[in-house]
Measured scan of single mutants.
Amino acid sequence: QVALSRTQVCGILREELFQGDAFHQSDTHIFIIMGASGDLAKKKIYPTIWWLFRDGLLPENTFIVGYARSRLTVADIRKQSEPFFKATPEEKLKLEDFFARNSYVAGQYDDAASYQRLNSHMNALHLGSQANRLFYLALPPTVYEAVTKNIHESCMSQIGWNRIIVEKPFGRDLQSSDRLSNHISSLFREDQIYRIDHYLGKEMVQNLMVLRFANRIFGPIWNRDNIACVILTFKEPFGTEGRGGYFDEFGIIRDVMQNHLLQMLCLVAMEKPASTNSDDVRDEKVKVLKCISEVQANNVVLGQYVGNPDGEGEATKGYLDDPTVPRGSTTATFAAVVLYVENERWDGVPFILRCGKALNERKAEVRLQFHDVAGDIFHQQCKRNELVIRVQPNEAVYTKMMTKKPGMFFNPEESELDLTYGNRYKNVKLPDAYERLILDVFCGSQMHFVRSDELREAWRIFTPLLHQIELEKPKPIPYIYGSRGPTEADELMKRVGFQYEGTYKWVNPHKL
């Protein structure tokens, strides 16, 4: 086992960053958080920038500027975001240094004079007029057009580079997404736009490419001749908990499936790229999406959770019991969808996408189930092999396979070949997804960000279904809070070829 401390991990990262040409360590950078008073800024962006600063992973002359409508001070920003920093008493001095680099400007999102004030403020910072500028839009999409237009007109660096990070949702359907994309691309070049999907920053999602293309053993079996089906799962054990009003506007397909799960599907299904260059990788992902037809209604199961009468606390409440959810809402909190990649490698292999709230566990994984062994000599005792990439929690890679049961006879039983990170790298604290992705933006690497043509294809696949749901308002199937979801989803999976045995229990190697 390799035991690495946080300091050692960050030392390795620093070495990698400083050796590259793309990370300008000594240049002045300004990180501007648009929507600095909001939840995302408070819980994710400010803490992430602090962790990067604490670990010495930001360029040395980096300033952080918050911008929002609320009249706040840096002290206010500190008060609301610091509880999420997880700072230790030993880091007190470092924390003071961090907040000394912070400033805040209040202004409207659609007022040109406010942006001119913001620009004057940035120019007044040390070497601010020639600094590289990175704008993070932690804002609702309704203000994107006004904000990007004003940034472009008043706040661009004339000497350094300018980059803009856009948070999902990128529209509600193909038409609104196209409108937003066309607007942003009329102001910024594609190499300046970073559409963030934080799932692409997760260690195991990034590991998929290495697993596939750096190991000879997987190449020959990664196709329709050997793989019976692919299941991509995202499960949350909690409901909307008072935030249903926002969720109800989008629903589970827009929230998770059309982005996170579809991105994971691309990494499983794509061909080997010409290189690890950002556009070479994204070219292959677009090719996969172009091979997927629009979702067919007979390959869809929609569910909505109801309270568990035997549960406790939140578990007793259904989705419609959330006071922020519109009365009688038919918005799905669970969806199972089957897609097919219609190309030579994957023809006929079902890709089953499942996601839901208020389920029995927290889990995100990719599961490849292989065909049955031909010419069975073990009297149907063999179960199908599976390769599982567990994204969260407890990152893991393992192969479910058959071995001989101890004893006199040739009785096979299920076991696993474990390729888990935790076994080799004991207690290594890896940077989280937002840390990686923000560092990628500083480096100018777009590999783990969504390109406009990729986004367009993703919406093309799901828009007809979303429009049909909005028009017909089908009643989702009720499922109990804390269950596996509607049984109809299991029946759909069985119908397209997935075999669920229920006889195997994964042993978490992190707890051995």
Results as ranks from 00 to 15, higher is better:
residue 498 F to M: 15
residue 496 V to C: 11
residue 268 V to M: 11
residue 310 D to P: 06
residue 279 D to R: 14
residue 300 V to G: 08
residue 442 F to P: 00
residue 344 E to C: 09
residue 405 K to D: 07
residue 269 A to N: 02
residue 440 D to E: 09
residue 492 L to S: 00
residue 470 E to A: 14
residue 348 G to W: 02
residue 376 D to R: 07
residue 267 L to I: 13
residue 471 L to P: 06
residue 400 K to W: 02
residue 270 M to T: 07
residue 346 W to I: 02
residue 301 V to T: 09
residue 297 A to H: 14
residue 278 S to Y: 11
residue 469 I to Y: 13
residue 505 K to M: 10
residue 385 N to F: 04
residue 369 Q to R: 02
residue 395 E to F: 00
residue 420 T to Y: 05
residue 491 E to Q: 12
residue 470 E to W: 08
residue 268 V to E: 02
residue 446 Q to W: 02
residue 454 E to V: 07
residue 261 L to E: 01
residue 479 Y to K: 01
residue 487 T to C: 13
residue 453 D to Y: 03
residue 317 K to P: 09
residue 349 V to T: 07
residue 305 Y to E: 00
residue 302 L to H: 07
residue 393 P to N: 07
residue 369 Q to W: 01
residue 374 A to K: 11
residue 275 S to N: 08
residue 468 Q to A: 12
residue 438 I to R: 04
residue 277 N to W: 11
residue 282 R to W: 03
residue 493 M to N: 10
residue 368 L to S: 01
residue 411 N to R: 08
residue 496 V to H: 14
residue 285 K to T: 04
residue 395 E to V: 05
residue 273 P to C: 04
residue 418 D to H: 01
residue 356 G to W: 03
residue 385 N to D: 12
residue 337 V to E: 05
residue 350 P to H: 04
residue 300 V to S: 10
residue 331 T to Y: 00
residue 359 L to V: 10
residue 350 P to C: 01
residue 425 Y to I: 06
residue 423 N to M: 11
residue 258 Q to S: 07
residue 385 N to T: 01
residue 472 E to L: 14
residue 261 L to N: 00
residue 440 D to A: 06
residue 407 G to T: 07
residue 372 D to S: 11
residue 359 L to E: 05
residue 314 E to Q: 11
residue 290 K to V: 03
residue 312 E to D: 12
residue 488 E to K: 10
residue 441 V to K: 04
residue 464 P to L: 09
residue 302 L to I: 10
residue 447 M to G: 03
residue 366 V to Y: 03
residue 348 G to V: 01
residue 418 D to Y: 02
residue 256 V to A: 08
residue 355 C to Q: 04
residue 481 Y to A: 12
residue 358 A to E: 00
residue 296 Q to M: 11
residue 285 K to F: 01
residue 283 D to V: 00
residue 351 F to C: 04
residue 467 H to T: 14
residue 323 P to V: 14
residue 261 L to Q: 08
residue 453 D to Q: 08
residue 418 D to W: 04
residue 494 K to E: 15
residue 315 A to T: 12
residue 450 V to E: 04
residue 291 C to V: 14
residue 319 Y to G: 03
residue 292 I to N: 04
residue 430 L to S: 12
residue 374 A to C: 10
residue 384 R to Y: 02
residue 412 P to Y: 09
residue 376 D to T: 08
residue 326 P to Y: 07
residue 501 E to A: 10
residue 471 L to R: 14
residue 325 V to P: 00
residue 448 H to N: 14
residue 354 R to M: 01
residue 490 D to E: 08
residue 459 W to E: 02
residue 397 V to Q: 00
residue 380 Q to V: 07
residue 442 F to Q: 09
residue 417 L to N: 01
residue 394 N to Q: 14
residue 258 Q to N: 03
residue 340 Y to D: 05
residue 316 T to D: 09
residue 485 G to T: 00
residue 398 Y to R: 03
residue 290 K to D: 08
residue 279 D to G: 09
residue 504 Y to H: 06
residue 274 A to G: 14
residue 316 T to P: 11
residue 291 C to D: 11
residue 367 R to H: 02
residue 479 Y to G: 03
residue 460 R to M: 06
residue 322 D to E: 08
residue 466 L to H: 02
residue 429 K to G: 15
residue 285 K to Y: 01
residue 297 A to D: 15
residue 399 T to C: 10
residue 296 Q to V: 14
residue 395 E to Q: 09
residue 413 E to Q: 14
residue 319 Y to E: 03
residue 273 P to W: 00
residue 395 E to L: 08
residue 485 G to V: 00
residue 294 E to T: 12
residue 280 D to G: 07
residue 421 Y to D: 06
residue 500 Y to H: 15
residue 290 K to Y: 07
residue 303 G to Y: 04
residue 283 D to I: 00
residue 472 E to S: 13
residue 432 D to G: 12
residue 487 T to P: 15
residue 331 T to C: 10
residue 274 A to H: 13
residue 341 V to D: 00
residue 307 G to M: 08
residue 344 E to W: 07
residue 486 P to S: 00
residue 435 E to I: 09
residue 312 E to I: 10
residue 297 A to K: 15
residue 311 G to W: 09
residue 495 R to I: 12
residue 498 F to T: 08
residue 308 N to G: 09
residue 336 A to N: 12
residue 480 I to L: 15
residue 355 C to L: 05
residue 386 E to P: 02
residue 344 E to G: 10
residue 497 G to M: 05
residue 366 V to A: 08
residue 282 R to K: 04
residue 260 H to P: 02
residue 504 Y to F: 06
residue 474 P to S: 14
residue 472 E to K: 13
residue 398 Y to P: 01
residue 421 Y to A: 00
residue 475 K to S: 11
residue 348 G to N: 09
residue 390 R to F: 04
residue 444 G to K: 10
residue 424 R to K: 15
residue 498 F to G: 08
residue 485 G to M: 01
residue 488 E to Q: 10
residue 327 R to I: 15
residue 271 E to Y: 05
residue 496 V to R: 15
residue 501 E to C: 10
residue 491 E to D: 13
residue 383 K to T: 15
residue 439 L to Y: 09
residue 370 F to W: 07
residue 481 Y to C: 11
residue 419 L to S: 05
residue 308 N to H: 14
residue 368 L to G: 00
residue 319 Y to C: 02
residue 470 E to R: 09
residue 405 K to Q: 15
residue 394 N to A: 09
residue 367 R to I: 04
residue 300 V to D: 00
residue 458 A to H: 06
residue 321 D to M: 09
residue 278 S to F: 08
residue 266 C to Y: 03
residue 373 V to G: 06
residue 404 K to E: 01
residue 490 D to A: 08
residue 451 R to Q: 03
residue 326 P to F: 06
residue 303 G to I: 04
residue 504 Y to E: 04
residue 377 I to N: 08
residue 330 T to K: 14
residue 283 D to C: 04
residue 288 V to D: 05
residue 316 T to L: 10
residue 363 K to V: 05
residue 272 K to D: 08
residue 482 G to W: 05
residue 328 G to A: 10
residue 301 V to F: 04
residue 476 P to E: 04
residue 402 M to S: 10
residue 261 L to P: 02
residue 369 Q to C: 07
residue 315 A to H: 11
residue 467 H to Q: 12
residue 384 R to L: 00
residue 465 L to M: 12
residue 458 A to G: 12
residue 426 K to M: 10
residue 351 F to S: 02
residue 471 L to E: 15
residue 489 A to M: 09
